[in-house]
Amino acid sequence: MSARLEKLRELGLALPEVAKPLAAYVPAVRTGNLVYVSGQLPIADGKLLMTGKVGAEVSVEQAHGLAQRAALNAIAAAAAEADGIDRITRIVKVTGFVACGPEFSAHPQVVNGASELFGQVFGDAGAHARAAVGVPSLPLDAPVEIEIVAEVG
């Protein structure tokens, strides 16, 4: 078993099947040594884990965990496009979208759920540039969405 898959197992996680797109796009596209992963929702076993706005129906702590699940789905999509998780050499960029009201300002704490997972799985290669953005709504009324750019070798 690869070190990265072993690390996921130590965290109590497993690489899921790639989530099916909700519309007319593909989960990931590779160009050169970069894989661009479409926005991933916190879906497990084909179901959205939670709905609602962060800071209202969804707590920051819950959203942090949902961002982690969306990041795991992003890793799965990148790994599928790269022909395996071990071909991912670096997480380059993470963009996290947080569905919330205009008064909410803890976007970074929510998206840390994704960033921390990338660091745990990829070590120093998981350090990345990032944006954490508040939005009024996301597909399926999801609380968070994570997209990434990964380098492959």
Results as ranks from 00 to 15, higher is better:
G101C: 07
P16Q: 02
L5Y: 03
E10N: 14
A23L: 06
Y36L: 11
A132K: 02
S115K: 15
V152R: 04
A56M: 08
L48Q: 07
V133R: 10
A80T: 04
I88V: 15
A150F: 12
F97R: 14
R4H: 13
A28Q: 03
I88P: 10
R130P: 00
V135D: 07
E145R: 14
D45Q: 14
E103V: 02
A142H: 08
L66A: 09
V133Y: 06
L48F: 07
V152K: 07
A67Q: 12
V18M: 09
A150D: 03
S59Q: 07
S137W: 04
E10T: 12
A3N: 09
G96C: 11
G153V: 07
G55N: 02
P42A: 13
A19I: 13
L11A: 11
P21T: 03
P27T: 00
G32M: 07
S105Q: 10
K47S: 08
P27C: 04
G153A: 12
S59V: 10
P136I: 00
G153T: 03
G153F: 06
G12K: 09
N73K: 02
E81M: 12
G123M: 08
P42V: 01
G55R: 05
E10L: 14
E116R: 13
E147H: 04
R9C: 05
Q40V: 03
D83E: 14
A56S: 11
A71G: 08
R130A: 14
Q68F: 03
A131I: 02
Q40A: 01
I91A: 04
G96F: 11
M50I: 03
L41R: 09
N73P: 09
A79T: 08
P108H: 10
G134I: 03
T31P: 00
E81Q: 15
P21F: 09
G153C: 02
Q120P: 01
I88T: 12
F104N: 06
Q109I: 02
R30W: 06
R69I: 15
V152A: 01
L117D: 03
P21C: 06
G65F: 10
G55T: 02
S105W: 13
V35A: 06
V29D: 01
D83G: 04
I91W: 05
G101K: 07
A44L: 13
G126I: 11
I75Y: 08
S59E: 08
R4M: 13
L13P: 12
F104R: 11
K47C: 01
A67Y: 10
P16T: 00
A125P: 01
V110F: 10
K93M: 13
V60F: 04
G123R: 09
I91V: 15
A44R: 15
A142S: 15
G39A: 14
V121A: 06
E103L: 12
A131W: 05
F104L: 11
A78S: 03
V58H: 01
P21N: 08
A76Q: 08
R9E: 12
G134H: 06
A24N: 15
A23S: 14
A23E: 10
N33L: 05
D45K: 15
G119V: 09
A14K: 14
P42M: 06
L140V: 00
I43D: 01
A131V: 08
P102K: 13
P139D: 04
H128Y: 13
K20C: 00
A99I: 03
A125E: 12
T95I: 14
K47F: 05
